[in-house]
Design a binder for these strands. Structure first.
Lengths: 319, 319
DNA sequence: TATCAGCCATTACTTAAGGTAATAACATGC
DNA sequence: GCATGTTATTACCTTAAGTAATGGCTGATA
C-alpha cells in the first residue's frame, strides 16, 4: 500500500512539482501554498525516507540521484493516472444518453417507480426510452439495452437473463369486495375478465396452468392497448393477467391484489439484450448490472408479498 | 499536475484501497481510520469527478466501469512508485561507504572544514578517505572518487574538472610583522623559504611566474611531509608555496596571508576521477556534484579575499 | 416473517496536520 | 558590499479530515 510508504498524502504531489520545476518557490505558486509549506513538506519526506531527494546549494536545489529515480517513477505514475482520468472524462462527456427499449407498461410500472434510485446511482445519465419492436431480432440501431422476451441466441447480441416470464391474475381489492373471489363469487354477480387483443398468453392458458376450471360465461372486457388493461384492473373493472414485474409495485402498494395466489411461469424468459457489434460503454454495463440487481430484489419482495396474501386468504381475511 | 485533478491529496490512496479490498470498512482498517471517513472521502471523490466509481447495493459495493478503469491506472501507477521506492531503499541500505582518495593535506585543509555541510547534505553517507597513489593511473579498486592532477584522458575513467592548480605564497601575519614583506624586508632579517622535498613546483618557478627576481640567499627550511610545510608557515617559520584550495580556509580565517597577491596557475588541473568499469551509484554522483559546487564557491571566496588583501597591501596596512 | 449481522450514509462534534507570517541564512550577480 | 532571490526555521492559526453515534439497506437465517 503506497500510502504507508509516504509520510503524508501530499508528499508525492509536492515532490513531483518541486522536481519538475526545480524550485520550492515555484512549486508553492503552482500548488497555491506558501514556500515554507513546501520546504517543510520536502524536509519531512526526506526524513521519512532516510535519504535526500534534493541537494541544496544556497538558493539552488538539484535532484539527487535518488530524487531523479523517484521523480522518473512518480512522473510516469502520475501520467498514467492523468491519462486515465482524461480518457474517462472524455467518455463521460460523450455519454449524453443511454437508450433503453422496453415495453411501455414496463416503463410505466417497473422503471418509473425506480427512477429516483436510478438517478441516485447514475446521476449523469440521460435515459431515452424507446418502444421495442417485436418484429425482428435485430436491435434498432442506437439502442443500448433492450429488454424483451428472447429465445434462441440471436446473432450479434449479448444476452443477460433478466426475469422469468411470470404471470398472475390481478384485480383491485374493491372488485373482490364487490364480486367475491373466483372460488366464492357473490350471488348474482358475474366475473369480468379483462383481456388483451394481442397478448401472447390467454386466460384459458392461465386457468389450465393453475389447475382450475375456466370460468363459465364470464363477461369479457377487451383492449388493444395493454396499458388500459392494468388501468382497468386498478379501477375495479375486472380480473386481468399481468406480468409480475410490471405490476409488482402495484401489488406491493395494494392497488392490485392477486385473485389467485399462484404465479404462472410461462417458461419464457426476459433478457437484457445489447448489440455486440459495438463496444459496450462502462455506464451501460453498470446500468445492466443495476437492472438485474433491482429485478432480483423486486422478485424477493413480490414473493414475500404473495406468500403473505395467500396466508391472509386462507385465514379468511380476503374472502 | 495530478493534484489539481483530485479533490484531496488522500483521494487516490483511499480509492485504491477500497477498490482493491471491495469494502469501505476493510479499507478503513487498512488505512487506520473509521469507516465514515472512507465513505465521505469516496463520496467527495465521485462528486469531484462527476461520475460514480462504485455502485452501492445495500451493504455491497461494486466498481463501476469508470471505477475499474481508474483502478487499473492507479494500481499500475502506485506499483511504479512502490517499486522505485523499494529499489532506492535497497540501494541505500547497501550504501555504507563512499571512498574518496585525495591528498592528506587536501583532506585536512579542504575537506574536513566542510564535513558539517557534507553531513548535512549526505546524512547517511560514511566517508572513507584513502591516500591516493601517484604511481599509476589505475584507480585502486574500491575507490569511488579520486581527486588529483590529471592529464591525458586515462583509460577506464570518468573525469570531471575540479580545480585549476593555483599556487600562492603564504606566511603568517606574525612572520610579516617580524620579517617584513619580500619587497620591504626588515633590516638585518633574512627571509626563510619553506620547501618540500618532493613538490612538483618550486619557489624558483613561482618567482619566475610572478615576474619577480628570486630572493638572494634566503634561508631554506625543507620538509619531506607536506603537512609540515603548512604547519610551519602557520607557525611563522617562513614562506611556503601552497595549493590554493588546500589553504583557502586558512587564508579566509586569517591564519595565513598571501605574501604576494598573485596566484599562479600552473596550467595543470585537478580532476575528480571515477572508474567507468562499474556503475556509479547515485550518491556518488551527488557527492561529486557537491564537491564541484563547493570548489566553485570556495574559489569565489578566495578570489574576493585575495582582492581585498591586495587592496589592503596597496594602502599600506600590511606593509 | 421477523430478526440478526454487516456494511454504507449522515449528522454533530473534535483536533492536529498543514497552512501562513515573519524572519534568518545562504548563494549569486553587479 | 549590497541587492536580490531562494531555502530554512519559528511561532501561531485554522480548517480539512478525523471520530462517535446512529440511521438505512441488503442478505442470511431461524
Amino acid at each position: 500500500m503506497l500510502r504507508r510508504k509516504l509520510p503524508s498524502p501530499n508528499a508525492l504531489f509536492t515532490f513531483e512539482v518541486v522536481a519538475r520545476l526545480g524550485s520550492f518557490s515555484k512549486a508553492a505558486q503552482e500548488l497555491n501554498v506558501t514556500q515554507p509549506a513546501i520546504s517543510r513538506a520536502i524536509a519531512g519526506f526526506e526524513e521519512h525516507l532516510g535519504y535526500k531527494l534534493f541537494i541544496r546549494h544556497g538558493r539552488w536545489i538539484q535532484l539527487t540521484g535518488n530524487g531523479r529515480r523517484l521523480y522518473r517513477a512518480t512522473s510516469t505514475a502520475f501520467k498514467t493516472v492523468i491519462d486515465a482520468l482524461q480518457e474517462i472524462g472524455l467518455q463521460e462527456e460523450n455519454r449524453d444518453n443511454v437508450t433503453i427499449s422496453m415495453s411501455s407498461n414496463a416503463v410505466n410500472h417497473w422503471f418509473i417507480p425506480r427512477l429516483k434510485a436510478f438517478k441516485n446511482n447514475f446521476p449523469s445519465v440521460n435515459l431515452d426510452f424507446q418502444m421495442y419492436s417485436d418484429d425482428g431480432d435485430d436491435l434498432i440501431q442506437g439502442i443500448d439495452l433492450c429488454i424483451r422476451l428472447s429465445y434462441p441466441k440471436d446473432k450479434n447480441l449479448h444476452r443477460w437473463a433478466f426475469a422469468d416470464e411470470r404471470i398472475m391474475a390481478l384485480c383491485s381489492l374493491g372488485y373482490i369486495q364487490e364480486f367475491g373471489t373466483l372460488e366464492n363469487p357473490r350471488k348474482g354477480r358475474t366475473h369480468t375478465l379483462i383481456e388483451s387483443e394481442n397478448s401472447s398468453y390467454s386466460m384459458g392458458e392461465f386457468f389450465h396452468a393453475i389447475g382450475q376450471k375456466p370460468l363459465k360465461k364470464p363477461k369479457i372486457l377487451k383492449f388493444s392497448d395493454n396499458s388500459n388493461i392494468i388501468q382497468a384492473a386498478i379501477g375495479g373493472q375486472g380480473i386481468a393477467l399481468a406480468w409480475v414485474p410490471e405490476t409488482s409495485r402495484l401489488v406491493i402498494e395494494g392497488q392490485l391484489v392477486p385473485i389467485f395466489p399462484q404465479v404462472v411461469k410461462t417458461g419464457r424468459r426476459y433478457h437484457i439484450l445489447a448489440s455486440n457489434l459495438t463496444p459496450m460503454r462502462p455506464v451501460v454495463e453498470n446500468i445492466r448490472d443495476w437492472l438485474i440487481g433491482e429485478m432480483r430484489s423486486d422478485h424477493r419482495k413480490v414473493t414475500s408479498m404473495m406468500r403473505a396474501n395467500a396466508k391472509l386468504m386462507r385465514t379468511g381475511v380476503l374472502k
